[in-house]
Design a protein around this nucleic acid. Structure first.
Lengths: 161, 161
DNA sequence: TATTGTTATACTCTATAACTATA
DNA sequence: TATAGTTATAGAGTATAACAATA
């Protein structure tokens, strides 16, 4: 069969993945939610909202960063009162990252803003086209060429020497 | 109506946009095509392939970067023989960036690799679902909350002072 | 000895601003 | 004066490696 559909999706994905397209979107989503909330800290916030209170090492796996990256971003968010560090009762080496009430509110706003932006487009579509697009996109994300989309990423790490 | 579809697409997009997902994909696409070909220079290569020979200022608009970014990346690509700088016959201030033969080949390989990866997934789908997904994705990229997906981005610049 | 979170280092990419040449 | 491309600078983010504390 022809590869037409493959090329078509490839071109579109290329455009969606453009730095400027993502930056545009995230800049407008995180606007006026405080200094610490931006494209960089966004994944930590929303990751933490999905997992609940969580160690940096664990969160690193779902976000696709290493421990040190999580720790740095968490420090920024902590300074702005979006999360707090709580000692892990089960392992005294570990520290749990936990959204504050304010952090939960901000995550709610972020999610709501993104969904609203998307709905603004999809609401102009025939309802069944919108529904089947959502379903196909989900399927594509899971089966497509992105590695492990749903979490456990290859955020491996070299042991100290 | 409910916002279910908006949230569903929002969540999926969040996963696709994850740094690790993009990095995974682009790392495997650009593998073994030379030092200069990576996630950073990819947009310049494919942008240049779309526009044809082009000045840095013009390419900056379609890629979503500023002149200096294009110039730096172009220098890397030039050093590896993927593009060449040609004086613009119509404006002697300007320099046209032009893919070399080797550059064209590499772009072809990149496109083919990406399309093949995507087809590997879509070929397991019912043909009409794949087709309508491609169509809807294209429509979503054009109408969705990404600003100007097809080019003319807000890569504005402050004049020298 | 292995793993936790944190931090210092070196590196890369970026935007900004300055520079030269041409319009 | 304005615009072209280039380049030096400073700033931010990253990965790596080292560190102290705990398992």
């Amino acid at each position: 069969m022809e590869d037409h559909v493959g090329y078509e999706v490839a071109n579109t994905l290329g455009e969606l993945f453009k730095r400027s397209a993502r930056a545009n979107l995230y800049r407008s989503l995180t606007e006026s939610l405080g200094e610490a909330v931006d494209e960089i800290t966004y994944p930590v916030l929303s990751g933490l909202a999905r997992t609940g209170p969580c160690s940096a090492a664990t969160l690193a796996l779902t976000v696709g960063l290493d421990r040190s990256g999580i720790s740095r971003r968490a420090s920024r968010l902590e300074k702005d009162g979006l999360l707090q560090r709580v000692p892990d009762p089960e392992d005294r080496r570990s520290v749990l990252l936990e959204l504050t009430e304010h952090g939960c509110e901000v995550v709610g706003v972020l999610r709501q803003r993104l969904a609203a932006r998307i709905s603004a487009t999809l609401d102009t579509w025939p309802a069944d086209e919108a529904r089947s697009f959502a379903r196909s996109l989900r399927r594509f994300a899971e089966e497509g060429p992105f590695g492990d989309v749903d979490g456990s990423d290859d955020a491996r790490e070299t042991p100290d020497r």
